[in-house]
């Protein structure tokens, strides 16, 4: 415990700038992964334990696309769309079979998929650590804002994630498609009775979630080493974020992601050894006191 160090930091503008941006970057990358997780739970009622695997696949596809084209944009899109296509196949041939089934059966399907995906990645890309490398455009010295250090690449990532958060919010809250999604989350039978093909809605939501996970993998590929099984540690944090924010709430995931990011960045100064413990304690407290999460909806009937 170093409360004095934390106080020092909070009273110094440069430290506040550095830690706040680092909290935002940690949080926003988690948000992109957690957003899909929470969306899929909210609409499909599926706890997608395979989410981390799609993040991994996205990162590897982005790596390969970058090797071929040298374009970071193409790489990120390849990660996102590649994961989305795989997601469509996974939904169509596996997840769809266990909608409304025992949660244990859903868990097993995901577990089996993760094992296969990790091994296939190892067979295809090898077990060596891979790193995409920083795209030329971002090989810039860090900028100083009020004495705080901020890498330009992170400004870019935070912006992209913020744009996606806004687009997601707009889609869900302001479009016809979003209204259908929300209706499906509450009462799929009624939506189906209105002549809307719910299986197609499920498929699209799942693909959207996987696109976000894959894109997050692609975005992070320049700064995170690629290894088979890399999705797991991301999955765990995403779960914590999702539970704290409220299972099914995208806005909740955003708030919780930023919260976790800031807790990590300031926590590493004030109570470095308890940063991870605090995440689990927060998750436990939320579950006990407010099981639906900070911004979760009341119990909705699941498909």
């Amino acid at each position: 415990m170093e409360p004095a160090a934390l106080l020092d930091c909070l009273t110094s503008l440069s430290c506040v700038v550095t830690q706040t941006t680092s909290g935002l970057i940690i949080g926003m990358l988690f948000f992109l992964v957690a957003a899909g997780l929470t969306l899929i739970f909210g609409v499909l009622g599926i706890v997608n334990f395979a989410h981390g695997a799609f993040y991994m696949v996205g990162a590897y596809l982005a790596y390969s696309a970058y090797q071929v084209t040298g374009s970071y944009l193409v790489a990120v899109l390849a990660g996102g769309f590649g994961a989305a296509i795989l997601g469509v196949l996974f939904e169509r041939f596996a997840i769809r079979r266990v909608y409304g089934e025992n949660v244990l059966l859903q868990l097993l399907v995901c577990y089996g998929f993760v094992l296969v995906a990790d091994d296939l990645v190892q067979i295809i890309w090898g077990s060596e650590y891979l790193s995409m490398g920083m795209p030329q455009a971002f090989r810039l010295p860090p900028v100083f804002i009020a004495g705080g250090i901020v890498p330009p690449f992170y400004i870019f990532i935070i912006t992209v994630a913020a744009v996606f958060a806004a687009v997601l919010w707009f889609i869900i809250e302001r479009t016809q498609y979003g209204r259908i999604i929300r209706a499906t989350a509450v009462n799929p039978t009624m939506v189906s009775a209105l002549g809307i093909p719910t299986p197609l809605i499920y498929l699209s939501v799942f693909a959207l979630g996987m696109f976000l996970a894959g894109m997050a993998g692609g975005l992070a590929a320049p700064i995170r080493a690629l290894t088979p099984g890399m999705g797991f540690s991301v999955l765990i944090v995403s779960f914590v974020v999702t539970v704290i924010g409220g299972m099914g709430s995208v806005t909740g995931a955003l708030v919780a992601s930023i919260l976790i990011g800031l807790v990590r960045s300031y926590g590493s100064i004030g109570f470095p050894l308890f940063v991870d413990g605090l995440m689990y304690v927060m998750m436990g407290l939320v579950l006990v006191l407010k099981p639906n999460g900070l911004l979760g909806r009341q119990e909705a009937s699941r498909p």
């Binding site: 596996a94 079979r97 266990v98 089934e101 059966l105 097993l108 399907v109 577990y111 089996g112 998929f113 993760v114 094992l115 296969v116 995906a117 990790d118 091994d119 296939l120 190892q122 067979i123």
Partner: peptide, 19 residues
Amino acid sequence: DHYGLFLGGIILLFSLGLR
């Protein structure tokens, strides 16, 4: 040497096939 592929495959077969 491919534990994941085989055990994962068995799990998928079981959970989607036998249920």
